[in-house]
């Protein structure tokens, strides 16, 4: 099992995730890739073998495909480095990257982004486990129609993008059962998000069954991936100005190790899935959980890469 995290690095805050210069300053994919190289060095040093790349790696230019074409050697170099360090790289579509929307322009933008990210991953030479995780999107007052649009646009995607995609359940609109059904029709794997599942499971599907279905959706030879986070429990707001409870959909800073251990021991066989921690403390949460596993579940810890 690999345990990873997305995006920003808290243990070394000066590491950048992408070239964030604005278009007049001519941001470039190759500069983002050199930042990614620095992150890979840090991950290797910290023994973290799963990482979600920034969706902003490719700067917002009018011709992202040109930048990918210009950067073939750097892309191959960074991809090779990830392979040498045995770091699984993934991506997650942005919130507005949606294929279910009735807005054709927005859907087209999402389509272009998915194709662009897939080409980027291909140019890096990343293996099939480098997936792009996608939500179904909004309901737009007609869930069936939204699902139909989603499937239609998914099927219209070129193969280069389709084979990188994995669908994730969300915490409000599309439950695990919804997503699993759509993914089965589209022939895509499912990323089970544990916290989303706890928050939105109107079918009352048992967790163990959802895990089983999610694992079985992945093709042979590709290790499944799941998202794990504990709900935030802290009181929000200042005590004097008024305070209110958290929403259970919010991520905690760290992962409750006992919850994680219980989930792994009850639902997963050894080494059956990689776990992406969606904790607010990012890499610090991974380091803390790994140390916690050594203490509280040494047998499980021995299977963490």
């Amino acid at each position: 099992m690999r345990i990873g995290f997305p995006g920003r690095i808290f243990g070394r805050p000066r590491l950048k995730t992408h070239d964030g210069r604005r278009p007049p300053q001519q941001p470039h994919l190759s500069v983002s890739l050199l930042y990614l190289r620095d992150i890979l060095e840090y991950l290797h040093q910290q023994d973290i073998r799963l990482y979600r790349m920034s969706p902003y790696l490719v700067p917002p230019t009018s011709a992202p495909e040109e930048q990918i074409a210009e950067c073939q050697a750097v892309l191959a170099f960074v991809g090779e480095l990830a392979g040498r360090y045995r770091i699984r790289l993934t991506m997650h579509a942005l919130a507005y990257t949606t294929l279910s929307t009735p807005d054709e322009q927005l859907a087209e933008r999402g389509r272009r982004e998915l194709i662009c990210w897939s080409r980027l991953m291909d140019a890096m030479g990343l293996p099939a486990d480098a997936v792009i995780v996608l939500h179904v999107g909004g309901v737009y007052e007609d869930k069936d129609a939204s699902k139909a649009r989603f499937l239609r646009r998914l099927e219209a995607l070129p193969e280069v993008a389709r084979r990188r995609l994995a669908l994730e359940n969300d915490d409000a609109s599309y439950s695990f059962a919804d997503v699993h059904q759509l993914a089965a029709r589209a022939g895509l794997p499912v990323v089970l998000d544990y916290l989303h599942f706890l928050n939105h499971n109107p079918e009352d599907l048992p967790l163990t069954e959802a895990v089983h279905l999610a694992l079985a959706s992945w093709p042979a030879g590709v290790r499944p991936k799941m998202h794990f986070s504990s709900p935030r429990t802290e009181l929000k707001g200042a005590a004097l100005a008024g305070a209110w409870p958290p929403h259970w959909t919010e991520h905690a800073d760290f992962v409750n190790p006992f919850e994680f251990i219980r989930f792994c021991e009850s639902c997963l066989a050894v080494g059956e899935a990689d776990m992406m921690l969606e904790a607010r403390a990012r890499d610090l949460a991974v380091l803390r959980l790994k140390a916690d596993l050594q203490r509280f579940a040494p047998a499980l810890a021995r299977n963490v890469e």
Binding site: Q26, L29, V31, L34, C71, A73, V74, F77
Partner: peptide, 9 residues
């Protein structure tokens, strides 16, 4: 000077 791009060669 600003970095415009990077290559590996």
């Amino acid at each position: 000077a600003p970095v415009r791009s990077v290559q590996v060669l």
